[in-house]
Design a protein around this nucleic acid. Structure first.
Length: 750
DNA sequence: CTCATACGGGG
DNA sequence: GTGTACGTATGAG
């Protein structure tokens, strides 16, 4: 693959950069790997700021012709009002200080950063270095060329002031593997020292774990502080220490000089999976080994006491799983790190638009010596969205989904829509090049060629799809353009409308349309080939560059509300979408009910639906369930003191207080409704059966049974979900009932 | 209903 | 002496 497109990769082809640390004083440390050798280049760069005018730097001596002067200004080509002054300095701290001081005076409020100051664009030091030099990480490297090390702590608690570390599993992608242990508290300090030593000796470029930023590192730092063990995880020659990356979000991120700290959870969280936990995700991706040991968090300490070998195995499997998971979920970020002027560790949690695309746009303007765009005009209204429409609700058979492949990116490229503030046409160039590259990688994948084609193509896709969102991102997006974004959605709605009416003309029953996809039901007797032919025929009518694709087929669908539905595959697999059907708070008994009832409803087996209902009702009434199976998980965010001080009474806290159970802020507990006593913590009696039957029957009826309503006639619904002893005189045999659907005429545009 | 805040996940 | 910004569910008003 060529890395010669300077807009895509930056203009400096230096290979093998594995980590960069820079500061505002203009110093930069660049670590490069060539095979086994890692070299540190200590260098300087000129910190930069794009400015709209020079008012805040009027007190500085600004050179216009000596680019090495303490402060330099270059007037850039650009329109009136654009950021047409590129200020650079030998020492970026002084430049920033002067600007903030003068702006504070001018505006009469404390200015401490560019984020609360209009008329400037700058970046963090490492990003400035990469932008100014045109360098990027990892050029010429594959995912496993850097040394990647994973470590995972086993602890006696979730917080370092209440527990300690008793085990650390550590491995790397060069074959190293070790389990460090501290059976007794007195050995913990030595074990931490040993981890530091392992890291210094194995000298990884990248340190990975799942949730490393919110768990392992804070825990490790907490213990090291308490035990007074020096914790140097960074590389020799660079600034020492470990520091919190200020990224404005609640969860912390950490950085050390010379190594990239990567958290697989950041990448997993944006994948829209039912859970982001390591174990769940590993199973979904099929990377859990067949002999995987699963231990409940709370039981790990006691398991270690009785069976340390099992915990060792568990801990090693954790780090091995992280290695596989990282290869799977971080390779897109790895690929993007070769393109965008940002450190690798930021990419899994940087947004693809502001975090990846915009830095590339800024870099292009920096190198062209062209001004950055002025601020966008303010729009009170959000820009218009996609076409969303529900055509039918209830149970429909023979369901097919068709979608327009990459609708918005295709519209952007086909209609040549670009930000009006992008005279260099960088946006469209990037869209075109990324799409072309994506297609190359997809083709290579299809030919079965070796290499990271899957990672590359998904990385490209990520950024291409971000293009539209970026245009509509509002004032935060430097090159955002509301009108351009509106053009994209307008065209997108036109296309979807065409698809919808052409499909309808093809004789199918439409169910729902959402932005770029349509679910519909085909007439009885249609073969899959006929379904695909219809989609091909509709596709043929679409404009050049836009294509409709077959996206799946199911034996039936329960359409409940827009974006809330259940599908039953031809293989019998049930898929539910939307908060109506399943959330984290869903009680186990209710989840079980839905899993039993939905497939029956979708197959038209209403006897089965009734059985599922009676089964659950019976189980509740006969107290065949335990409290655990009716409990919901709640989170106690306030401390007891905070709660007592607050006005509002909340069930979950009252439950803890009335039971006399202490809690800590942030704690997660299970609670259930106890007979006559209301909400109680589950902990006291998880295997008991003293739950409030009436309350849970009510929950079943109002919270879950109602989700099936759209698939039944009103009479059938009433009859099916009535207690069995209340048989009515005019009841129909259930075996004669059939699920129903009806057309709806609510249409709206988001 | 809309707006704001908290969460995820880790032992 | 680094570095603003995720997506979604629930609670508050």
């Amino acid at each position: 693959m060529t890395e010669s497109d300077v807009l895509l990769y930056g203009h400096d082809p230096t290979p093998g950069i594995v980590s960069v640390y820079a500061d505002y004083s203009g110093q930069a440390w660049v670590w490069r790997r060539e095979g086994h050798q890692v070299t540190l280049e200590q260098t300087r760069f000129r910190p930069w700021v794009f400015a709209r005018d020079l008012t805040d730097v009027a007190s500085l001596v600004l050179s216009r012709d000596d680019p090495e002067a303490p402060f330099h200004v270059k007037e850039l080509t650009g329109k009136v009002g654009s950021l047409k002054y590129l200020l650079t300095a030998k020492d970026g701290y002084s430049l920033r200080r002067v600007i903030f001081q003068n702006a504070t005076q001018r505006l009469g409020r404390q200015i401490t950063g560019f984020h609360d100051l209009r008329g400037y664009v700058s970046a963090g030091p490492t990003e400035q270095y990469l932008t100014a030099t045109g360098r990027t990480y990892f050029k010429g490297m594959s995912f496993d060329d850097p040394v990647r090390l994973q470590f995972d702590l086993e602890t006696t608690s979730l917080t370092p002031d209440q527990g300690r570390i008793f085990m650390i599993a550590v491995r790397d992608n060069r074959g190293f593997e070790k389990v460090l242990e501290a059976r007794r508290s007195a050995q913990e300090a030595d074990m931490i020292g040993e981890l530091v030593q392992v890291i210094q000796e194995r000298d990884p470029d990248i340190i990975e774990n799942h949730n490393i930023n919110s768990f392992d590192l804070p825990f490790l730092m907490g213990r090291a502080r308490t035990l007074r063990v020096p914790l140097e995880l960074g590389r020799q020659g660079g600034p020492a220490g470990i520091w919190r990356v200020q990224d404005g979000r609640s969860s912390p991120h950490w950085a050390v000089a010379g190594r990239e700290i990567l958290d697989t959870i950041d990448a997993v969280r944006r994948m829209d999976l039912p859970s982001a936990s390591l174990k769940a995700v590993s199973q979904i991706f099929g990377i859990a080994p067949p002999d995987r040991v699963y231990l409940e968090g709370e039981k790990i300490t006691e398991t270690y006491r009785d069976n340390p070998a099992l915990v060792r195995k568990y801990a090693l499997q954790d780090v091995e799983e992280v290695d596989h998971l990282a290869r799977r979920v971080l390779s897109a970020s790895f690929a993007l790190a070769k393109m965008t002027p940002r450190p690798y560790h930021r990419l899994p949690y940087a947004g693809p638009a502001m975090g990846v695309l915009e830095p590339m746009l800024i870099r292009a303007y920096y190198h062209a010596g062209h001004a950055l765009p002025p601020e966008q005009p303010y729009h009170a209204e959000p820009h218009s969205g996609g076409h969303v429409e529900l055509f039918a609700e209830g149970v429909l058979a023979r369901v097919v989904k068709a979608d327009v492949a990459s609708l918005y990116p295709s519209v952007i490229r086909a209609e040549r829509i670009e930000p009006q503030s992008d005279p260099l046409h960088v946006f469209l160039h990037l869209m075109d090049r990324l799409t072309a590259l994506r297609l190359q990688h997809k083709a290579a994948m299809r030919r079965g060629e070796a290499g990271e084609h899957q990672a590359m193509q998904s990385a490209m896709k990520l950024i291409i799809n971000a293009g539209y969102g970026y245009l509509g991102a509002g004032r935060m997006a430097l090159f955002g353009d509301r009108e351009a974004a509106d053009q994209v959605t307008t065209k997108g709605r036109d296309i979807l409308n065409t698809v919808v009416s052409d499909l309808r003309a093809g004789g199918v029953t439409l169910i729902e349309a959402d932005t770029d996809g349509v679910y519909f039901s085909v007439p009885e007797g249609w073969s899959e080939q006929q379904e695909r032919e219809l989609i091909r025929a509709v596709d043929a009518e679409l404009p050049e560059g836009i294509s409709l694709e077959f996206d799946g087929r199911w034996q039936a669908m329960l359409s409940h509300e827009i974006k809330n539905y259940a599908l039953l595959g031809y293989d019998g697999k049930l898929t539910v979408r939307g908060a109506s059907f399943d959330t984290v708070r869903t009680e186990p008994f209710a989840r079980d009910f839905m899993q039993r009832a939905l497939p029956c409803l979708l197959k038209g087996d209403l006897t089965g639906v009734q059985d599922a209902f009676q089964f659950t009702l019976n189980a509740l009434q006969q107290r065949q369930l335990t409290n655990r199976e009716v409990a919901t998980r709640v989170r106690l965010t306030k401390t007891p003191e905070q709660y007592r001080a607050s006005k509002r009474r909340e069930n979950q806290y009252e439950a803890m207080l009335s039971a006399g159970v202490p809690w800590q802020a942030g704690e997660r507990v299970y609670q259930y409704q106890q007979q006559e006593k209301g909400w109680r913590p589950l902990d006291g009696n998880p295997d008991g059966r003293d739950y409030d039957v009436q309350a849970y029957v009510q929950t079943l009826l109002t919270g879950y049974v109602t989700r099936l309503r759209k698939g039944l006639t009103a009479e059938d619904y009433r009859q099916l979900f009535r207690p069995v002893h209340e048989q009515g005189l005019f009841d129909l045999p259930v075996s004669d009932m059939r699920p129903v659907w009806r057309a709806v005429d609510t249409s709206r545009v988001r």
